[in-house]
Design a protein around this nucleic acid. Sequence first.
RNA 1: GGGCGUUUAGCUCAGUGGUAGAGCGCUGUCCUCACACGACAGAGGCCGCUGGUUCGAUUCCAGCAACGCCCACCA
Length: 716
Amino acid sequence: MLDTRYDHKNLEEKIYKLWEKSGFFNPDKLLNKKAKPFTIIMPPPNANGALHMGHAVGMTLQDIMVRWNRMRGKKTLWLPGADHAGFETQVVFDKKLEKESRDRRTIPRDELYREIWNFTQKNKEIMYAQTKKLGASCDWSRETFTLDPRIIDIVYGTFEKLYKDGLVYRDLKVVNWCPKHKTALSDLEVKYAERTDPLYYIKYGPLTLATVRPETKFGDTALAVNPKDRRYKNFIGKTIEARGVLGSLKFRVIADAAVDPKFGTGVIKVTPAHDAADFEIWARHKDEIAGPKAVIDENGRLNENTGEFKGLKVAEARGAVAAKMKEIGILEKMEPNYVHQVATCYKCGSTLEPLPKPQWFVKMKPLAEPAIKALKAKKFQILPKRSEKVYLHWLKNIRDWNISRQITWGIRIPAWFHEPKCIPKIGHEKDVIKCKEIIVSPKEPKCEFCDAKYVQDPDVFDTWFSSGQWPYATLQIRGSDFKNFYPTDVMETGYDILFFWVARMVMLGIYRTGKSPFKTVYLHGLVRDKDRQKMSKSRGNVVDPLGVADLYGTDAVRMALTVGNTAGNDIVISEDKIRGYRNFATKIWNIARFVMMNEVKSGTKPKFTASDRKNLANLKKIKAQITKHLERFEFHLAAEKIYHYIWHEFADKIIEAAKPRLKSENNPDKAAAYKTIETLLTESIKMLHPFMPYVTEEIYQNLPNRSKETLMIENW
RNA sequence: GGGCGUUUAGCUCAGUGGUAGAGCGCUGUCCUCACACGACAGAGGCCGCUGGUUCGAUUCCAGCAACGCCCACCA
């Protein structure tokens, strides 16, 4: 006889092992080879820490879909993995180094790489153990790390193809430079913050202009006005003489439509080295004005082009330069409270320094077009539906993607630069002009014409460039998986990475395979604490999903994360809610206990009453409703309905009504009462299994007559 | 400057063109032999505001307000 309490602590591990041993996590074990596939590629968690509640939400929803489809007889593959998470992991590891008073830039590359490798492998194992504890029924035989050599091969192949197709190029642009992390970032990794700064009005000879960044004036190469601005019509094309902080200067006044006549005085200074917009203005007027002249270095300090200000940090230099301007009488006025948006690093919040740097860029328009078409042609859908508009808007306005990162951790870019010295091979003295400056190749190239070495680009890819290829890459590295499981059915992930990851998977997936990598994208919300705060390590409000699972059982945590959780909306988690579903686990456990206690051994032929038949028919109706909810990705409604049915219909009404009949002597009526609740129990735990797999499986294992090895493979 | 979301019971959230739901909390009675992590009974909501459509709106439409989020090279 079962105990009065379901003992999750001692049973969960045992049950998971039972599932693993059964082999049914692997779709190849399925006997029906003609079964339709159902595939989910698990978003690989970053191997730089433990799983958090957000992961638990994703794992739960994915496992619900996977278990349900497996029970429906589909050839179900859920492929797990882990992400090396380039920049994110580098940041975590840099902090660790900082605590040990070490600096990544002074550690030999190979050594540092090995250290971080070991760090991620350790984290990976912890994460996998946590994933198992959450009950995830994924196929561990296909587990893949994003730095698997076979994956890197595919990523390199994509880069080479993009290069050949002219969709990847190296160019000098003003990029988002984080002076703390000392790397460029993509536009998506920029977080704009509102700041209140002084707006300085500075005299440039006869003209006055407004700027918040007087410290960059040493890099000015021109002044610009709007071509339609009548006030300055006579200045266009002229050169004006101005008194500068370091002596007198001459600037040409150019006309460019990008200048807003309503801002400040309608005149701006053009500083191509330290402002992306100015850089583009220069690009349009290359023959008229000088190009980027850097005055700020990678550490965010003024360089040798700034005279006495050399070595000052940008923030310090600003006031110092302004003071000097005031002293020499070129500071006309200052508005102290100018509110504007400043680009900051999404990780550390440092003000980003726009710096001119040669980087690798992906040309996005040609990749975005098919991704837009695919959605419009309903090749895939995004839930919630409203995020489709967000997706389309982003793709329509997409800009080229900087995929170079100046860090160690990641997949090194397979590009090689020709050494400066060029000693021709004998007989090729005239050919050396044909030596290629850059060669894209996974292996070190040799020059045909000279003995120069090629040196590999020290930079690594933006992680999202490789994880953007995850669905097809993970399937292409193994036998006939690609043929059997691609395109996948569902991509389940958080809405916060719609652009970072989902859109890029669609673009790269279509580019390499011709097909969208998935049919449905389901975006879940962010998990918040009871005060609606976003959970984060820096806030210190993270609830460890494994900790509460230890307390109340994984099933309770999963159920609490499912009920009330709708696509695209944030979810608030509280211990009270989890405790409530722990009570539900106990309830279903005791229902099972009651049914088993009242077992009527077969022998007496049951005589079903009208209400027995009604109850059995009603169950089918409920099940059809649950099925419909699951088909529509309404996990919250399905979970709530099952909960309500089991507790308030099955237990409260049907079982209560059956009690007197079960107390009578052995007869056809008693047999019918038993048979009815036995059937309802079996069906209930089947319906509940995708949501609360452990307790239902344990009940199933104790059932007097079960037909399958595990509940996991019962027929839905 | 664009776009989006939310506003329903004390709290956190589901839901619906026609008597309003869940978890936790609250009140009362029961330690009745499945379950006190329980049973039964109950209190508690002008379903943000204003207009419109409709026989009828919390649900559809428009406007407004509050809170929140995303996107954006106005220096």
